[in-house]
């Protein structure tokens, strides 16, 4: 099997510090107000039985990415290693990909005026380095690598741990795997959000 990049985020280690979020901004010069990666956190329960759950989010580099399918000019493309990228020279900024991504992973970069999202720090990975968020993750909760390489940390974690993805019901087949994720964090409680549940 060829190389297939994926990310495993071990939430047993995550302290919700947002280092990944800032590293991404810094590395990729992401403007304020938009994010390629961010961290959600919720607290739930009733005192004193309480829990907090964190969920770093980023582009899932899906196997069957909605964004890629809907792009009318094929500006979004996928490398053989699974990385989903945007050709910033071709993108017309129709925002269809943004509307279609189930993960809010995309936005229009107000500087460049094209659709944009996490690239897995493609240039860094090509040069043998880790994505900036993974590199800086202070607890090592973020792990990036070749899902198909039995020697990779990602492979080992996928092989030995119980993982979950966000919105498996979509046909996207997302490639960000969470260890220890909470269901409420993985999927917003829409009914509550729309006021149907107090």
């Amino acid at each position: 099997m060829g190389k297939r990049y994926a990310m495993v985020i071990d939430l047993r280690k995550c302290v919700g510090c947002h280092a990944c979020q800032v590293a991404c901004k810094s590395e990729n010069n992401v403007p304020l107000g938009v994010n390629r990666s961010w961290v959600e956190e919720l607290e739930t329960g009733k005192f004193p039985n309480v829990s907090r759950h964190r969920l770093p989010r980023l582009c899932n580099h899906c196997e069957n990415p909605s964004c890629l399918n809907v792009c009318p000019v094929k500006a979004t493309y996928q490398l053989e290693d699974g990385t989903v990228l945007v050709d910033y020279d071709r993108c017309i900024g129709c925002k269809y990909c943004i509307a279609a991504c189930p993960y809010d992973a995309r936005f229009i970069n107000p500087e460049r005026n094209t659709a944009e999202k996490c690239t897995y720090c493609h240039e860094r990975v090509e040069a043998g380095m880790q994505p900036a968020c993974v590199n800086t993750c202070i607890t090592g909760a973020r792990v990036f690598g070749d899902r198909n390489d039995p020697n990779s940390e990602v492979f080992k974690l996928l092989a030995t741990q119980s993982v979950a993805v966000s919105k498996p019901e979509t046909n996207n087949r997302p490639q960000t795997y969470y260890i220890g994720a909470d269901e409420k964090a993985l999927r917003p409680n829409l009914l509550e959000i729309v006021g149907g549940e107090k």
Partner: peptide, 16 residues
């Protein structure tokens, strides 16, 4: 169950 969200990462509506 009461659930509090700590951070609101802004997302916008792009198709208006």
């Amino acid at each position: 169950m009461p659930t509090v969200h700590f951070f609101d990462t802004p997302h916008e509506i792009y198709w208006g």
